[in-house]
Amino acid sequence: DVEEQIRRLEEVLKKNQPVTWNGTTYTDPNEIKKVIEELRKSM
């Protein structure tokens, strides 16, 4: 579920933690925001 994935990513973003997405680890909050944007567009 895309909305659930977005929620999880936003939680990680709030905690300022790195997130691994599709085999890539993002540590930059701006990169994580881009991933969230892409997910929103795909909905």
Score class of each variant (00 low, 15 high):
40 R>S: 05
17 Q>C: 08
24 T>S: 08
16 N>P: 06
2 V>M: 11
34 K>G: 05
27 T>Q: 07
31 E>L: 09
22 N>H: 07
29 P>F: 07
32 I>R: 00
11 E>Q: 07
14 K>G: 09
21 W>A: 02
41 K>C: 03
34 K>Y: 04
26 Y>L: 15
34 K>H: 09
42 S>D: 09
1 D>A: 13
2 V>L: 14
6 I>T: 01
7 R>S: 09
25 T>Q: 08
24 T>E: 11
3 E>L: 14
31 E>A: 10
9 L>M: 09
30 N>K: 10
33 K>W: 10
42 S>V: 13
29 P>L: 07
26 Y>G: 01
11 E>W: 04
29 P>Y: 08
16 N>I: 04
29 P>D: 04
39 L>M: 05
26 Y>E: 01
25 T>C: 08
27 T>M: 07
34 K>L: 12
27 T>S: 10
43 M>Y: 08
1 D>E: 14
27 T>I: 10
36 I>H: 00
18 P>V: 11
23 G>N: 08
5 Q>P: 02
15 K>A: 12
18 P>T: 13
15 K>F: 13
26 Y>D: 01
11 E>S: 07
42 S>F: 12
37 E>V: 05
32 I>P: 00
5 Q>K: 04
42 S>E: 12
5 Q>L: 14
28 D>Q: 06
41 K>E: 12
14 K>C: 09
33 K>R: 14
38 E>C: 15
29 P>A: 11
36 I>L: 10
35 V>W: 05
6 I>N: 01
19 V>I: 14
9 L>W: 04
32 I>M: 03
25 T>R: 04
38 E>D: 12
3 E>R: 08
10 E>W: 06
29 P>K: 07
37 E>L: 08
21 W>L: 11
40 R>A: 04
23 G>L: 02
41 K>I: 12
4 E>G: 06
39 L>Y: 03
37 E>N: 06
32 I>N: 00
40 R>F: 05
33 K>G: 06
29 P>R: 05
8 R>Q: 15
30 N>R: 10
31 E>M: 10
6 I>R: 01
9 L>Q: 00
25 T>E: 11
22 N>D: 10
41 K>D: 09
19 V>F: 10
9 L>N: 00
2 V>P: 06
10 E>I: 07
21 W>Q: 02
9 L>K: 00
29 P>I: 07
33 K>V: 09
14 K>V: 10
32 I>L: 07
31 E>Q: 08
21 W>T: 02
22 N>G: 11
26 Y>I: 13
22 N>K: 06
11 E>C: 05
4 E>C: 03
1 D>C: 11
39 L>F: 02
9 L>A: 02
20 T>K: 11
28 D>W: 02
35 V>M: 11
11 E>R: 05
13 L>R: 03
5 Q>H: 10
9 L>V: 03
6 I>Y: 02
5 Q>A: 13
6 I>C: 00
43 M>S: 06
33 K>N: 06
5 Q>S: 12
41 K>S: 13
4 E>L: 06
2 V>K: 07
3 E>H: 10
1 D>K: 08
15 K>C: 09
7 R>F: 07
34 K>N: 09
35 V>A: 05
37 E>C: 04
23 G>H: 03
6 I>D: 01
29 P>C: 03
26 Y>A: 01
3 E>Q: 10
27 T>K: 07
25 T>I: 13
29 P>S: 08
43 M>E: 06
20 T>N: 10
37 E>D: 14
4 E>P: 01
39 L>C: 02
26 Y>Q: 01
8 R>P: 01
14 K>D: 09
8 R>K: 14
26 Y>P: 01
11 E>D: 11
12 V>A: 15
5 Q>E: 11
36 I>V: 06
30 N>W: 12
31 E>G: 03
38 E>I: 10
28 D>E: 08
18 P>H: 13
19 V>P: 02
25 T>Y: 14
40 R>D: 02
21 W>M: 08
22 N>L: 12
15 K>W: 11
33 K>A: 12
13 L>N: 02
28 D>T: 08
43 M>T: 09
21 W>S: 02
32 I>H: 00
5 Q>R: 04
30 N>S: 13
27 T>G: 05
34 K>E: 08
22 N>S: 04
14 K>T: 11
37 E>S: 06
4 E>F: 07
5 Q>M: 14
1 D>W: 14
43 M>F: 09
35 V>L: 15
32 I>D: 00
38 E>Q: 11
11 E>V: 04
9 L>R: 00
3 E>P: 06
24 T>M: 14
3 E>N: 05
13 L>K: 01
37 E>P: 00
9 L>H: 00
4 E>M: 08
35 V>T: 03
25 T>V: 15
13 L>A: 06
4 E>Q: 07
21 W>K: 01
22 N>C: 10
42 S>R: 05
23 G>V: 01
24 T>R: 08
18 P>N: 11
2 V>T: 10
3 E>S: 07
20 T>V: 15
40 R>Q: 08
35 V>H: 03
29 P>V: 09
40 R>L: 10
12 V>K: 15
31 E>W: 03
22 N>T: 02
24 T>A: 08
38 E>P: 00
42 S>C: 09
11 E>G: 05
17 Q>W: 11
37 E>M: 08
29 P>H: 08
35 V>I: 15
1 D>G: 13
16 N>Q: 09
26 Y>C: 01
39 L>N: 00
21 W>G: 02
4 E>A: 09
42 S>Y: 13
7 R>W: 09
16 N>M: 10
36 I>W: 03
22 N>P: 02
39 L>K: 00
19 V>E: 02
24 T>K: 14
17 Q>I: 14
43 M>N: 09
19 V>T: 06
11 E>Y: 05
3 E>C: 04
15 K>G: 11
29 P>N: 05
3 E>A: 12
15 K>E: 12
36 I>P: 00
17 Q>D: 08
16 N>R: 06
15 K>S: 15
13 L>E: 01
32 I>W: 03
2 V>Y: 09
36 I>K: 00
39 L>R: 00
15 K>V: 07
25 T>S: 05
42 S>W: 11
21 W>Y: 12
41 K>P: 02
11 E>I: 04
36 I>A: 01
